[in-house]
């Protein structure tokens, strides 16, 4: 269990981040959470993304879910939408790949080309 002090500290951090981001358009991460995605490990992928965002104290990213997009063999699938850029879709995203994609693509705007399955 977290102590009350810890919770209070986390709360203050979150509030500070919320104030910072008010205004600008957000980066969006879409995780495939259809049956095929979940069966392939999407819960762990989503968990790793949330953990990486929390660890880096990134609050201005919107994480959403989508259903099956018909590429079940590529699941777990995630897509990153940066404001003003095309959508980049990654396939077979394990926990480790998810962390790397957050660090490289979301934080540093560097697309991880070898894992991309579609851009539009």
């Amino acid at each position: 269990m977290k102590t009350v002090e810890e919770l209070e500290r986390i709360r203050k951090q979150a509030q500070a981040m919320t104030r910072l981001r008010e205004g600008g358009e957000s980066i969006k991460i879409v995780v495939g959470m259809g049956t095929c995605g979940i069966a392939a490990g999407a819960r762990e992928t989503l968990s790793a993304i949330m953990d990486e965002l929390a660890r880096r104290n990134i609050q201005d990213v919107i994480v959403t879910q989508t259903g099956c997009i018909g590429l079940c063999e590529q699941e777990p699938i995630i897509a990153i939408v940066m404001p003003g850029s095309e959508k980049v879709t990654y396939g077979k995203v394990s926990r480790e790949k998810a962390r790397k994609i957050v660090a490289s693509h979301v934080v540093n705007s560097q697309i991880v080309g070898e894992w991309v399955i579609a851009t539009e």
């Binding site: 979150a14 949330m50 965002l53 994480v63």
Partner: peptide
């Protein structure tokens, strides 16, 4: 005060 939708 922490948002329920926050990764943290």
């Amino acid at each position: 005060g922490m948002s329920i939708g926050s990764p943290s």
